[in-house]
Amino acid sequence: MSENTEILLEVENLQKFFGDRHVLNGISLQVKRGEVTVILGPSGCGKSTLLRCLNGLEPVQGGTIHYLGQNLTGEHVNWREIRQHIGMVFQNYELFPHMTVIENILLGPLKAQKRDSKEALQQAETLLDRVGLLARKNDYPRQLSGGQKQRIAIVRALCMNPDIILFDEVTASLDPEMVREVLDVILGLANQGMTMLIVTHEMGFARSVGDRIVFMDQGKICEIADPEQFFTEPATERAQQFLNIFEYNKL
């Protein structure tokens, strides 16, 4: 499904330092429309930092990021505008605690995008219904479970009608029994052709949702592979070791 389509994001030779630490060392990556890219790698390999750079939350020290041909690493980037096209969902949901569910979802569409409130509300309710949470629209985040909060956070990102959504370990803070409900929502989006960049530690999910796997270690991309191939016959020794550890964890 991802052949012959346009390139949404193009990252070239990206460099990022935290002080002396070289967190991203020459990352190059293309994301095509409709493609689901899953980024795997051990903790501290730089995968979350990569996502944060793509959303302008971290300055970069070298290389380029292009979104639909527009350079995002230059001097005067209008991140406000860009972020309306590149959505992001965080590990700890980060819903606004002082707003109801529906207010959380509508803040971006109404204030950042200045959309018509009737139309935005209608879309928000449709999306809420799709994740099974329409009944909770007037609740506050504190009244919801972790899984529900994360589903709302996904709806909040979706309601901006982004071209691409970045998922940063969105199930890492959840109790095991709630992981499934969130992953199902993301799988549903994949089936609808949503372009996504997903950082996760859920191997089974990565295998079923990903069009391809990007494996990172120590700030570099070690290999990019088809999921089947990656999980059965990884090309690099690093990836082999990484998968072994997960095998062990499953025991």
């Binding site: 406000r80 309306q84 700890n92 980060e94 606004f96 803040l107 990102a157």
Partner: peptide
């Protein structure tokens, strides 16, 4: 700071 990032990620301006 993650609340701020969350606000930025939905395209809010600094004033908003």
């Amino acid at each position: 700071s993650s609340q701020l990032e969350s606000g930025l990620s939905i395209g809010l301006s600094k004033v908003q």
